[in-house]
Amino acid sequence: MGEFDFSVWQPSLPFIRDGLLFTLRLTLVAMSGGIVIGTLLALARLSPIAPLSRIAGAYVDLMRSIPLVLVILWFFLVIPFITGSPVGAETSAVITFTAFEAAFYCEIMRSGIQSVPRGQVDAAQALGLGQAQTMVHVILPQAVRNMIPVLLTQTIVLFQDTSLVYAIGAKDMLKAADVVGKNYNRPVEMIMLSALIYFAICFSLSLAVKQLQKRVAIIR
């Protein structure tokens, strides 16, 4: 049995930092894009226009029924095949994650919108607000507020899932750890390091969400 040699962690830090920055950027972009598109999808799903609601529903069902890693691979391989020009791994990752996460944020926003009592809609409409105004000023702000803990929990899952871009060779934190591990022939130590960083970030975020949940509970 070999011995651990953690001295490799020191020289790996600049690479890990760059990888982590990409991971964070990917998470933030996919989260914001996912929430915006997810909200639009949720509005489409709840729309009385049947075709619109069906298309949005089909999209969500499709995305939720395919493993993420397959979506990542499929997009990375198929798009160049169709368009003739390759998409970089990073761009591909951003687009795929946004599109995939949108389906999950859609379901969260949908239940958020449905959690707003019917009376609020009546009150807004009784004041003469139109449908769009009611949605923008009365329903969505409350939906987001009700769903903040769930949205953040989903974002923590997203943060972990970004490690799957490993499959297409995008330079995220796990990839950086992998490369350093191979160069120094210390793969186990490097995988331990990236696991520690994932754990530290996710665990502190989870604690923060719990705190937030308590505060939201008091405000309500």
Binding site: P117, G119, Q120, D122, A123, A124, Q125, A126, L127, G128, L129, G130, H137, V138, P141, Q142, R145, R220
Partner: peptide, 21 residues
């Protein structure tokens, strides 16, 4: 134009329905 008509008819609800946010 219902929104326009409703703007001229005030309504008060059993559960107040103020906007909590």
């Amino acid at each position: 134009d219902l929104p326009r008509l409703r703007a001229r008819v005030g309504m008060v609800f059993q559960h107040f329905e103020l906007f909590p946010h």
